[in-house]
Amino acid sequence: MIRAPAQYWLLIVMWIRSVLAYPASFVLMLVSSTLVNLTDFVAVLIMFSHITAFGGFSLGEMALLYATSSTALGMADLLTGSIERVGERIRTGAFDAYLIRPVPAFLQAAADGFALRRLGRPLQAGTVLVFALSKVDIDWTVARGIMLAVSLVTGTVIFAALFVLGASFQFVAIDSAELANSVTYGGQALTQFPLTVFGKEIVRAVTFVVPLAFVNYYPVLYVLGKPAPLGLPSWIGLLSPLVAAVMVALSSLAWRAGLRRYRSTGS
């Protein structure tokens, strides 16, 4: 397993070099990918041309939620997003080619078709993060600083685990790629807003069922010193690394089960 990062790197370097073989095309794709994602935040800006607070969050605080959510999804999409094409690869037979190589199929599926242009989203989110931090008056402590940095990593891990869970389901239902979008891209659309505006049931669901609230919402509440909903302790954001670890374990089990199923049914 210690070799896995090296093997992954080996594969993605090939794809990065493939993309850079056409530099003009790459730049164009990167710019347009950044623009596509920017429209999300422009919507928030337009909303704030009419209002001054959204669900108790100011524009700067909303920007912080947006930036953390979008960075996490963007990084997860960059690193593991290719895995959502597993159904298509099973259909074309490309998946079998992974299984004859001495590298775990998971790494190959995640690295194959690695699209550097997906950096567009984290780049755009990073810009919004700078905007947010300049606008919000945060009472910085070491713990809050660490929480913000850690949440970017754990959020990425949680989204990556969701990508893998969605891909694993394609071993059962080959055409279900769009289904996973509802928790990944849908999750990003959800977590860019203060979750309480969606009602208590949704907050419960994204805390205890699909733990999207740990991607950025609880960590950001902690950083901003805002109370947590549902009577949960304000430090609940600190649990996000634990949640990320559980999600990794679950998604790894699901992937293994999916792969086992594929190898014993051949379809």
Binding site: R17, S18, V103
Partner: peptide
């Protein structure tokens, strides 16, 4: 022992290349 065996066998699929297309 699929991964272990993979180092000791070679496979060529006639219609599909496993080479990197753009490189």
């Amino acid at each position: 022992h699929r991964l272990k065996l993979a180092r000791r066998i070679g496979v060529v699929f006639g219609q599909r290349t496993t080479l990197w297309w753009d490189l």
